[in-house]
Design a protein around this nucleic acid. Structure first.
Lengths: 112, 112
DNA sequence: TATATTAATAGATAGATTGTTATATAGGGA
DNA sequence: TCCCTATATAACAATCTATCTATTAATATA
């Protein structure tokens, strides 16, 4: 979905999802998974994503709290999820970051 | 302040400020003041900014609510304010939008 | 099958956010 | 001075968020 077809409240949802220090931390870590997370047995850090447990360990909040944060990020389109065996792997969705970037670009370009 | 010297929780504050439909609406209007607001007697729409009353009229919430939203935007650095006579004029701060844009660019550039 | 692992869901709670009305403050004009 | 206009502040209500513990569900493994 391009910025042109974006419903009017999609952008606030993306910004709201990033507007939390814990979630910003998660997104920052996910940007460079191999430096921030240990290798996983049943899912590749880059191709499949990061499993919930790895985030729980680093973020130092409870597992349900991480699940909630991931749901907010997923609802905003900032991450996608994939289930392999008993794990759920979350991966950054760069498309949505570009979309937010375009929205900011629109607002920062003072024309008149 | 450049993105390099940005404290680690500045970015979430900016995104949180934009992560509300009403505030996003305000920022969008302020991006192009002359098309969205009537001319003002004691302050120029472009050079001085928009007065609170004009936003109250368009946003259709109470004046104190607008004042609260403007404070959140100002605290995040997204707008600056200037008092002329009994009016407070708010103006978009493009610097901060660029800062948020740079943060998104950083996160969307997958290097490894 | 019984147990361990992993994540999601349910339910509770403290605190933040968004909104209201009422009041205070500050400046301009009659 | 007295009143009007514009904004801010106070006090409060309703809703949302972030967090927890306990439980459930699903999958693996011994």
């Amino acid at each position: 979905m391009t910025i042109l077809s974006t419903p009017h409240d999609t952008a606030p949802a993306i910004f709201a999802a990033m507007g939390n220090p814990k979630r910003m931390q998660i997104v920052t870590w996910m940007h460079d998974p191999t430096t921030h997370f240990p290798a996983q047995r049943d899912g590749d850090l880059v191709n499949d994503g990061i499993c919930v447990g790895a985030i729980v360990t680093k973020l130092e909040v409870s597992q349900p709290t991480v699940t909630t944060h991931m749901k907010i990020l997923a609802d905003a389109g900032l991450v996608t999820s994939k289930k392999i065996k008993q794990w759920t792997f979350y991966k950054l969705n760069v498309e949505t970051l570009h979309q937010a970037e375009a929205e900011l670009k629109r607002l920062s370009s003072i024309l008149g």
